Amino acid sequence: MVSLETLTPFQDKPIEPRQFQLISLRSFTVAMYICHFEWIFGLEYGSFPYNSELNTMLVSNDIREYLEEGSLIFIPTAGVMEKAYDMMIYNDNRSREPDERKRFEEFGTGPWEYTILPGRWDRKTKKIRSLPPLFNRSPDGNLTPFPFEDCDYDALPRFTSFVHPLIVIMLNRINMPNNHPASMAIQEKLIAPLKKVLRKWPQWQHNRFLPMPNTKFKREYDAGQKIICHCTFCSKNGSSTSTASSPELADTCTDDAEEVEEESRMEEYKELSRIANERIAVWRGCLEGVVFIHGDVEHDGILDRYGQECTDAADKVMLRQEEERAKREKLAAKLQGDFPLNKKSRLS
């Protein structure tokens, strides 16, 4: 057994342990998967354990970037992944009620075993991509190399951790690994079971915690907070509200739908602005460190320029989205004129 705290690409540099959050709330990519995860793995809406030990672990600061980008991955055992697959298939049944799902807690409390291997391989050369040679540093300072390219399944490094295997599976869904080219045993015991789960990851866009729009069915389910959905159906019908008080939805667009869509765009703009402000704060801290060393450095102008660039970038993103939306509406209107519908569309 090894530890991600002691892996390093350096032979003469002290190791600095750092906290690693597998799934971060700040990631735009995570937002695409989190509602799927909560539904198929039996969590309440909005209850993903971001700050729990189920989602955080100590790792060597030198390998943290490789874990974040998927160049270095770790995979649960085949038995755990088979259980995850069964839970996903059961919970993702279209007619399943929220309270009928198998629960996240059924996986127990850990610790769980994981196998470490590279996640990126060159298909032509069959060499590892974007990952330097790694060493494990023992408490007495000795270094043990890990030659992944020539490593068979039994020789791969392993560790145990309280991070949850379902969350590890989601991390691998975000950073989809390549096939391991060297060993059939690695394929059969690690890659194939993982990809069996990932291939069944839901593709639906509508939030399953809400009933589908334009239906008479009203699901009596209260997750303790407002449940929202920004899929096309809900945006058109203005149904991004809690199901506990949802009325029967109308068949056509209303002014409320336009307000919901505008609110969604404003929320996205606020998120872009938040990121811009965070980057400005980081730059300010770096530049203040320079000023501390060189007292005569003028940096206010640089900060202003950075701030202006960030604001412009956010504005341009929103402008492009508005232009794209206008183009699509114009094209849709033209197509509808060329091919008149015999029956009024429920989404028009």
Rank of each mutant, 00 (worst) to 15 (best):
W204I: 00
R173G: 01
W204K: 04
Q187N: 14
N178S: 15
P202Y: 00
H206V: 02
L190G: 07
K200W: 02
W204Y: 08
A192G: 07
A185S: 15
N178L: 06
P193G: 06
A185K: 15
K196W: 00
I191Q: 07
P193K: 04
K196N: 12
F209K: 03
A192F: 07
N179C: 10
A192Q: 13
Q187Y: 13
L210P: 00
Q203L: 06
M176T: 13
K195M: 11
A192I: 11
P177F: 09
P193Y: 01
P202G: 00
Q205D: 10
W201M: 07
R173N: 06
N175K: 09
R208N: 04
I174L: 14
S183P: 04
L190S: 10
R199A: 09
N175E: 06
I191V: 14
M184A: 13
K195C: 10
K195H: 13
K200V: 01
R173E: 05
Q205E: 14
I186L: 12
H206Q: 07
N175G: 04
P211R: 02
N179W: 11
N207T: 03
P177V: 11
K196P: 09
P211L: 02
I174V: 13
K189L: 15
K196H: 13
P177I: 08
R173Y: 05
V197L: 01
W204A: 00
A182D: 13
K195E: 11
Q187F: 12
N178P: 01
A185P: 06
Q203H: 05
A185V: 14
L210W: 00
I186G: 07
H206W: 00
P177Y: 09
N178K: 10
K189R: 15
R199M: 10
N172M: 08
Q187C: 12
P193A: 01
K189G: 09
P202N: 03
R173T: 01
Q205C: 05
P177E: 11
M176W: 13
I191E: 08
P177D: 13
N207M: 03
H206G: 06
N178Y: 11
Q187K: 13
P211F: 01
I186Q: 11
N178T: 11
P193N: 04
W204D: 04
P211A: 02
N207V: 01
R199Y: 03
N172G: 02
H206A: 06
R208C: 00
L190E: 10
W201Q: 04
N172A: 07
A185L: 11
L198A: 04
N175S: 07
L194G: 04
P181E: 07
H206T: 04
A192C: 07
Q205R: 11
N178H: 14
